[in-house]
Design a protein around this nucleic acid. Structure first.
Lengths: 127, 127
DNA sequence: TCTTAAAATGCAACAATGTTGCGTTTTTAT
DNA sequence: ATAAAAACGCAACATTGTTGCATTTTAAGA
């Protein structure tokens, strides 16, 4: 793996993502970081954090991209096989780490990643 | 439901989507339609087709949005609970209608839509 | 068939999101 | 301390999606 460095901005952004209960979009991260660094730098930091596998990208049903911390720190060859929940009301995206999906698929497909997103009303909005 | 009309452009675009084995992005639809209509019109037609529930939107893992025909024509209150496969190599997105996912989720979540996308190498690219 | 209101379209302009090149600054290994 | 590599800021660009408005097309009723 190409060597990536720990910088002030990178640590701050990772901290923002890790301390958030919900997955964050680029714009949300930008607002939370309050002028910490350039918009472009955030994109580059997100790329690095994904290469290092400490965060993962989630494509939400409406087409927006969000980022969340990985909670499997020390596993090798892991896949992000957990369920995401996307709330229609508050637009939050959460990782439901405890829920494991099951599926079967024809043998001639090679599965490397799983992106299982349920959408509807989250527990906080579901009065 | 607001009345939507069948126009030349709408029929042509629906035909393109229905006759495609893979899900298509806006850009791909635009190329296949070869100057049939304006770029903006394609967006509006896609919106209408989704409202009418004859196509559905798929958010691929890399964040791009694709559209595919629905194959459940006459069901009411259906949800798109089938599996999508996204190929890392040829970037095709296919609906695996026969594969049904199963999952369990805490009761306090209200699930309305399911988006289950597997990614890896599709059967055509898998040697 | 003719009329007409609503829906659809094209165009231009805009907004949001993501990317690239490059000169400068910071990090880290030596 | 030094130097190479990585990260950064900035500007410019590319892509993707949206909005307003004048014009055209559709479809339903007279």
């Amino acid at each position: 793996m190409k060597n990536t460095r720990n910088t002030v901005a990178k640590s701050a952004i990772l901290e923002i993502i890790q301390s958030s209960k919900v997955a964050l979009s680029h714009v949300e991260i930008q607002k939370l970081s309050e002028g910490l660094c350039d918009r472009v730098t955030i994109y580059r930091i997100l790329d690095r954090l994904m290469i290092e596998d400490v965060i993962h990208k989630i494509a939400t049903p409406d087409g927006t991209v969000k980022y969340a911390a990985c909670h499997h720190k020390h596993e090798e060859h892991h896949i992000h096989n957990h369920v995401h929940f996307s709330c229609e009301k508050c637009h939050s995206v959460t990782c439901l780490d405890t829920v494991k999906p099951s599926y079967s698929i024809p043998k001639d497909y090679l599965v490397k990643e799983i992106n299982f997103t349920l959408s509807g009303i989250c527990k906080d909005c579901n009065e």
